[in-house]
Every structure is written in C-alpha cells, then in structure tokens.
Simulated assay, not measured.
Amino acid sequence: MLENLKRLDQEWFLAINGYHSSFWDPIMIAVSDRKFWIPFYAILIAFLIYRFRRQSILMFLIIALSLAAADGISSRFIKPFFARLRPCHDSSLSESINIVAGCGGKFGFLSSHAANSFGIAMLFALILPERYRYFKIFVFIWAAVISYSRIYLGVHFPGDVLGGAILGIFLGWIFGLIFRKLVVRYSYFSV
C-alpha cells in the first residue's frame, strides 16, 4: 500500500510539475519566496496593531510560537526522520522533472512552507472575529497557492505539501485554542 501511495504521489507530482510556462515560472518563484510577502506581512502587522491595539501583542506572540513550532517540527524532526528526498534530488525523476529555481535542502517530507502558511491560516481562522470571514478565506487560499508553488517549482511532492498542511492546521488549531483560553481566562479581549 505504501508503494502505491508513493507511486500515486509521484504521478500527481509529475502532472502538476509538468504544467510550465514562461509566464507562470517567475510568478511561482515569487509566490514561493518569503521575501515577496514582506509587504503583505507589514500591512497585516499594521492592521492588527491598529485594530486590536495592545491585544495584538498576544496575537503576535501566538503567531510566533505557532510558526516556530511548525517550522521546527517540520524541518528539525520530521524531515530528518523520514529522510524522503525532494523530487529535485530524486535521480529516478531527473529526466522528467522541471526544476525552475534551484532545489533547496535534501529532504522534502514534509513541506515547511505548507506547514507555516496553513498554520497561520488556521490560527487566523480561530483568533479573528467572525466579521473577518473573507480575510480568513483569503489566508487559506494564500496558503494553498504557496503550497502549490512548491510542487510547480519541483521541490516538493504533493504528499509533502499535504503533510505540511495537516501539521500546520493541527498546530494552528492548538495555538488558536491556547489563544482563546488566554483571552477568556484573562478577559484580554473579546474574539
């Protein structure tokens, strides 16, 4: 069964990675680059400070802890434990893969980009008031686009991205619950 899943993962990877164009290549490189999102993060930080004032301190703390957990668990524990080569390091795929902008580290399971972005998306889904539902939808789309870009660029299998998304959502949920408990316990502010 594990071999069938691995084969299916490779087939999906090759199908997604095979759709390349000179138009989409630079866009996917940008979407995958953390520096590209700095203006978005700056606007988000400014909005949270403006809207939630001192309460934004707790938000930033929870976001930082969630990111540290997602990135640390995916990069320092899961990747070395499973030691699954990234597609771009897999010699059996070298003839049929499109590597757009370099490869990255040796191991790919699971995607830290997916874990981090889906963790933040889930966290915002839980900590922001309901009136921000369109923003909540946007951050899940943002996480999905970043995750898709990793497959497109040839650095992750779909299973790597799915595993990262699951880890991120789980950690975002855990830290979202912690945030809510702190808010209720200390009446820090209403969500």
Rank of each mutant, 00 (worst) to 15 (best):
G154L: 03
F138E: 01
L177Q: 12
R76Y: 14
I141H: 00
I166M: 12
C103F: 08
I49M: 12
V191C: 04
I137H: 04
F189I: 11
R84Y: 06
S56G: 03
A143R: 02
R180M: 11
C88R: 07
I49V: 15
Y148I: 01
A46L: 14
L65R: 03
E95Y: 14
S22Y: 10
G168P: 14
A114F: 07
G18N: 01
F107W: 14
M122A: 13
V31G: 05
E11D: 15
G154H: 01
R150N: 04
M1K: 04
A83N: 12
I16A: 02
F47C: 07
G163D: 02
G105A: 09
I43P: 12
A42K: 12
F175I: 03
I169W: 04
E3Q: 13
H156T: 08
L14I: 02
L65E: 06
F135I: 02
I57Y: 11
V145W: 05
I38V: 14
F77D: 07
F40S: 10
G102H: 09
I169A: 10
A83G: 15
I174N: 01
F157W: 08
K181W: 05
G163F: 04
V155R: 06
S187M: 11
S111M: 09
I166H: 07
E3M: 01
I16G: 01
Q55D: 14
A64M: 09
L8Q: 12
V184K: 14
A115K: 04
M1W: 04
S32H: 07
P39W: 14
S117I: 03
F40I: 15
V139P: 06
A121P: 06
H89Q: 14
R34P: 08
I166Q: 04
I45Y: 08
H113C: 04
S111K: 10
M59I: 10
D33W: 03
A101H: 13
S66R: 00
F175M: 01
A121R: 03
F81T: 09
S56N: 05
S96A: 14
Y50P: 02
N116C: 09
L126N: 01
R7H: 13
I174G: 00
G18P: 02
I43S: 15
I45D: 10
D33N: 15
A46V: 10
P158M: 04
M122K: 02
L8G: 00
R7A: 13
L61V: 15
K35P: 01
F81K: 07
F107H: 12
N116I: 08
K106M: 13
I146W: 03
P158D: 03
L48C: 13
R150S: 01
R133L: 05
I16T: 04
V139G: 02
Y152T: 02
S21Y: 03
G168A: 11
L153I: 06
R76Q: 15
I38M: 14
W12K: 02
I78P: 09
F40N: 12
I78V: 15
R133W: 10
L167S: 05
I137R: 09
K79P: 07
M28N: 12
D33E: 10
A30R: 07
L126H: 00
S22L: 13
L44E: 08
L153H: 05
Q10E: 15
F47V: 12
S32T: 13
